[in-house]
């Protein structure tokens, strides 16, 4: 970065391109809250939260870097406190293993778990959507049990089916489109989480609560055709 310093409540703000300015934050909730706050101001072209950072794009033909830094800095000072009220709970059906979750066997071996133990661990807690990103509606869902921490695949797959549920780096990820992907795949959901034609194309949004429940291949098929 060309320059960086601490301002805006002691956060590190730095430019990472001629029209991109970033700030490091402590966690996903803080990143999301700041991105929402910036977006609501209408002063930025894009406001995107990462896992522990937020990047804002500005119109640098009209706004110089110093002004952008000033705007970001004051936004950090008056970002509303992270909402703590109960968010919507979405229950997501998953058909685990087999052709739906081609990496489940390897992961169970790696973690020394039986298939049922894995499914019990994965379905027994409530998660939170950290962010959408990568491709339209791809959900990064945080809160995975420490016992299920595995890395991404060394080589991405050329094609992962839409609906595939992967785990990596302490998160569950759901692919909404078929395409290349690097997360080990443990199952697939029949739920359609991205539908461009729908009034709200995105079933999941950052901050929502998520629970997974296991379905059989027959139930999966019935849910898809239903």
């Amino acid at each position: 970065m060309a320059s960086n310093d601490a301002d805006g409540a002691g956060k590190r703000i730095f430019d990472c391109g001629d029209d991109l300015i970033a700030v490091e934050l402590e966690d996903t909730r803080a990143s999301q809250a700041l991105a929402d706050h910036l977006r609501n101001s209408g002063q930025w072209i894009e406001c995107v939260a990462g896992i522990a950072s937020c990047v804002a794009q500005f119109d640098n033909a009209n706004v110089n870097l110093a002004e952008a830094r000033q705007r970001l800095s004051s936004a950090i000072d008056d970002v509303p406190a992270v909402r703590t009220e109960e968010s919507e709970l979405v229950e997501v059906p998953v058909c685990y293993g087999g052709s739906y979750g081609p990496d489940l066997g390897d992961i169970c071996e790696q973690l020394d778990l039986s298939r049922d133990e894995f499914i019990n661990l994965h379905t027994s807690r409530e998660y939170r959507v950290d962010m959408l990103g990568f491709t339209p509606g791809f959900a990064f869902i945080g809160g995975l049990d420490d016992a299920l921490n595995v890395p991404r695949r060394p080589e991405p797959r050329v094609r992962v089916e839409a609906g595939s549920v992967g785990i990596a780096g302490g998160r569950t990820g759901i692919y909404t489109l078929s395409g290349p992907g690097g997360w080990p795949i443990v199952g697939r959901t029949p739920a359609r989480l991205f539908d461009a034609a729908a009034r709200d194309p995105f079933r999941l949004h950052a901050g929502m609560r998520v629970r997974f429940f296991a379905v059989s291949p027959d139930e999966f098929d019935a849910m898809v055709s239903g």
Binding site: I45, E46, V48, A49, G133, F138, T176
Partner: peptide
């Protein structure tokens, strides 16, 4: 524009 936070 303005939809990158939704993955678009």
């Amino acid at each position: 524009q303005g939809m990158r936070h939704l993955g678009v």
